[in-house]
Design a binder for these strands. Structure first.
Lengths: 166, 166
DNA sequence: CAAAACTTTCAATTTTTACTGAAAGTTTTA
DNA sequence: TAAAACTTTCAGTAAAAATTGAAAGTTTTG
């Protein structure tokens, strides 16, 4: 396979994965593109490669910066901004995990905690509380575990993987 | 808090979580509703509670059945179908994990594997391969680990959580 | 077997989400 | 300091996804 073809395939596939998981396709594609570019890219280059408008490129680049997985670079002698993805997959996973947990999982854990406080003592209420408690325990354990994994370093991760997999 | 209010809050919040993670809101809400209903519900009851059309209710119920986390029940003397969510959170997590992995993660791992086969030996190609390899290793390890977690039983899970957390 | 009870399908519509492009804003340079 | 180079914003538009509702399909019952 040719390098260009491979890049294209990867960028496309990453976009599909992203949109399946609630990340907009373009944002995922820009991220993929920057991940496999040997050098930082300008807005123009991103626009050109993905055939998207300036506004779209700009907003999604900013989005990626907000996630903390892309940074602006300034080239001396150049007036444009250049963008570069963090190539440390660990760092990327860490940031995404922390952000998504904070934005999406933690609020749900909070709600689960709240709705547990049903005063009623009927059979139905008891069953409800039980279901919610299990859900809460599961959710927060999993959330904690994922964070733990991702916070630790690469070496620890693989060690743990190996330990747990056998 | 009153039971009804608590249920409503939970159903709503589960819908939000779902749509953030690429699951349509209604499907997530129906699932939540069935999870906290003491008895199986008919299509009418689901329609009524969530204020949705028959077609919508039907399609999303079928969707949930396809995921393997909701089952049809037949009540003797009744002609309608009734729907019931699997209340074993473990089983639910297991099925969702397996399905999403199969539908969404595995295809990406396959692509990553494919695009590694770049013949070129330029510096750029080398860097590309390195990035993809790291991504692939990370993705498949994480995927494998999550599956492993979810395949094992509740007891093993908590034991592992405790072991890893300290 | 035909009417009733119920379920499924799908074209049309609505809602939501993403994108465009031009205008406004900002920074740099001469 | 004004024009050029570049970035950001956002109202309007387009595209995608979800939903409706009515018609077609299926199963049950008398």
């Amino acid at each position: 396979m040719k390098l260009d073809e491979a890049k294209q395939k990867f960028v496309h596939s990453w976009g599909v994965l992203g949109s399946n998981w609630g990340i907009n396709k373009t944002m995922a594609q820009i991220h993929a593109l920057l991940l496999v570019s040997e050098k930082p890219l300008s807005t123009e280059e991103v626009m050109e490669y993905l055939q998207i408008s300036r506004g779209n490129a700009n907003m999604n680049l900013r989005g990626l910066i907000d996630w903390g997985i892309v940074t602006k670079e300034i080239k001396i002698g150049e007036r444009k901004d250049f963008f570069k993805a963090d190539k440390d997959i660990w760092e990327v996973a860490r940031r995404i995990t922390e952000e998504r947990s904070k934005r999406e999982v933690e609020p749900v854990i909070k709600i689960l905690n709240e709705v547990k406080n049903v005063e009623e003592e009927s059979e139905e209420a008891k069953e409800f509380k039980e279901t919610i408690e299990k859900l809460e325990s599961f959710t927060s354990n999993l959330d904690g575990l994922v964070k733990k994994f991702v916070k630790s370093d690469e070496h620890w991760f693989y060690k743990t993987v190996i330990k747990l997999m056998k």
